[in-house]
Computed example of a mutant assay.
Amino acid sequence: MGRVTARRPVVRVGHGAVTSRPDTLAVEEPLEVRVGGRAFAVTMRTPGNDVELAHGFLVGEGVVRRADDVLAARYCAGTDDTGANTYNVLDVALAPHVPPPSASLERTTYTTSSCGVCGKASLEAVRVATPYDIAADPVRVDAAVLAGLPDELRRAQQAFDRTGGVHAAGLFTPDGRLLCAREDVGRHNAVDKVVGWALLQGRLPLQGHVLQVSGRASFELAQKAALAGIPVLSAVSAPSSLAVDLAEEVGMTLAGFVRGGTFNVYSGAQRIVAPDNAEPLPAR
């Protein structure tokens, strides 16, 4: 399988000195996802957990909902200059009861590590409706638990410790127990890997769970969370306006700037249990 990290020489400059040394970088390579032998999308990702990534990606596209929607996911033959398999092409075979993805969902360009919706064939295909009633999810999360999730996720980021160059996503229970953490150069890929893990574990929809991400909360991350049935999305950095709009539309709790013991709640504040002696959070 592909490597998660790679070593490259660097010249370090600072404090009046110049030194040469090796540095550890996060690996970024393309993964072509095929559905039934037909090219569907190419995403730039960190190798590892590719089967989870493909499953989660198809959940986020509204193609599959359950583990039995997929018959198999296999690497296709693809070699580098030495003749070794690159493990950069994965073909997903859908079950007979699952209709193939429509042409409007196909990506006309590759998806970079910073873009989760690039290359959609139509504007209508960008917004995919969730099949779950997220607004009805009664889960409640203590404010102190939510504030501590970034630190819990950070402790699970092994690739970040070595490279400083990957995003992370973590799936938590309402009491702050980490169920699954995944890293990738693409924030959307990290989320897809977590959702793919949950799908393969038969956990979808993810009612009563919290998704913590290491960066900002963009529209595509909010949509991926919604399509997995996740009621609470928490981000270390800022949300986008469209992410907030989507969260309000589907009834998702969206928290941003979750760091240093504080956070902002942009949608669904009624799910957050306020600290002792504090006023209850107003519904939004």
Rank of each mutant, 00 (worst) to 15 (best):
R182P: 01
E183R: 03
E183M: 02
D184E: 04
D184W: 06
V185Q: 01
V185F: 05
V185T: 14
G186R: 01
G186A: 15
G186W: 01
G186Y: 01
G186T: 06
R187F: 00
R187S: 14
R187M: 07
R187K: 11
H188F: 11
V191Y: 01
D192G: 00
D192W: 03
D192C: 12
K193H: 03
K193W: 00
K193T: 06
V194E: 03
V195P: 01
G196H: 02
G196W: 01
W197C: 05
W197E: 10
W197D: 12
W197T: 12
W197P: 05
A198E: 00
L199C: 13
L199P: 06
L199M: 12
Q201A: 14
G202L: 03
G202T: 04
R203D: 07
R203E: 13
R203P: 00
L204N: 07
L204W: 05
L204Y: 09
P205I: 09
P205C: 10
L206K: 09
L206V: 09
L206M: 07
Q207P: 00
Q207W: 07
Q207T: 14
Q207V: 11
H209C: 14
H209T: 15
H209K: 13
H209A: 12
V210I: 09
L211K: 03
L211S: 09
V213W: 03
V213P: 08
V213R: 02
V213S: 10
S214Y: 01
S214I: 02
G215L: 06
R216N: 11
S218C: 08
S218H: 10
F219S: 08
F219R: 05
F219G: 09
F219Q: 07
F219L: 15
E220M: 09
A222W: 02
Q223C: 07
Q223N: 09
Q223W: 00
K224S: 15
K224H: 14
A225T: 08
A226Q: 09
L227C: 02
L227Y: 03
L227V: 09
A228R: 03
A228L: 12
G229T: 11
G229K: 07
G229A: 10
I230H: 05
P231Q: 12
V232N: 09
V232L: 06
S234D: 05
S234A: 15
A235T: 11
A235H: 11
S237F: 10
A238V: 13
A238S: 15
A238F: 05
S240I: 03
S240V: 07
S240W: 05
A243E: 06
A243G: 11
A243V: 08
A243C: 12
A243L: 05
V244E: 15
V244W: 05
V244N: 03
D245Q: 13
D245P: 00
L246C: 04
L246R: 12
L246T: 06
A247G: 11
A247Y: 05
E248Y: 02
E249R: 12
V250H: 04
V250T: 10
T253L: 12
L254G: 12
A255D: 07
A255P: 02
A255C: 15
G256A: 14
G256Q: 10
G256E: 15
